[in-house]
């Protein structure tokens, strides 16, 4: 599903280049549930952005579902993000002026579906996540746990090849966090491939496999 070979990434700091990721080799099989565990500044978010095709590597090779991402144009990467990746963000990243339904169906609209088709397709996901009674609400009217469920629903609705979760419980209370992790396990059991980054070992332990990242280097 994911194959990364010798990935390097750095950012310019004045005249000097600060290395963030160093010779990363990473492999994820279809149906896996992997947690990337690391402290702040370790490079885990940068790695996540590269896996999610939102940032580009300086060198190395990256294959997602058989596609050479390192050799793909920005326009094509847009399609990859829409079709193959489902993002779940720590701070939910919902569009505040849209209601729950409008937020959830956005990835489907981007595929060219009309409003009605998209709403029909996402009805099952909405039921699965228990958001039936909230579809007309704006994000500001939801609790943190509900917002994260909307974010998960939006990630799931397009049936992506992989779910990428960036600190999914970081902004939630303990109870809501547990619910989300339980949901991830259920989704994984349903066949979804999940890669989650976290700095919390307890959260990481909900995954089937843990990979540690320290100073831009990956350790199994």
């Amino acid at each position: 599903m994911i194959t990364m070979k010798n990935i390097n990434k750095g950012y310019m700091l004045g005249e000097e280049k600060l290395p963030i990721l160093k010779n990363i080799d990473f492999h994820v099989e279809r149906g896996e549930y992997v947690a990337i565990l690391g402290p702040s500044g370790s490079g885990k978010t940068t790695l996540m952005n590269i896996i999610g095709c939102m940032d580009v590597m300086d060198s190395g090779e990256y294959y997602l579902d058989g596609m050479a991402i390192h050799d793909t144009s920005e326009d094509r990467l847009t399609d990859v993000r829409n079709n193959k990746i489902g993002f779940i963000f720590q701070n939910y990243q919902l569009i505040p002026t849209y209601n729950v339904m409008q937020n959830i169906i956005m990835p489907l609209l981007m595929r060219g579906m009309n409003h009605k088709e998209a709403e029909e397709q996402c009805s099952e996901t909405i039921r699965l996540l228990g958001l039936d009674h909230r579809i007309g609400h704006r994000p500001s009217e939801l609790s943190g746990g509900q917002k994260q469920r909307v974010s998960i629903a939006r990630a799931l609705v397009g049936k992506p090849a992989i779910l990428l979760a960036d600190e999914p419980t970081g902004a939630l209370d303990q109870s809501s966090g547990k619910d989300v992790l339980k949901l991830f396990q259920e989704l994984n059991e349903m066949g979804n491939t999940i890669v989650m980054i976290t700095h919390d070992l307890n959260v990481a332990q909900s995954a089937k496999r843990i990979v540690r990242i320290v100073d831009g280097q990956l350790f199994e």
């Binding site: 829409n82 595929r111 939006r154």
Partner: peptide, 16 residues
């Protein structure tokens, strides 16, 4: 800008 980022993250094209 943040919303544009969200839209781009979930696959909205430059054209759109």
């Amino acid at each position: 800008t943040n919303e544009i980022g969200i839209l781009k993250a979930i696959g909205c094209s430059r054209r759109d």
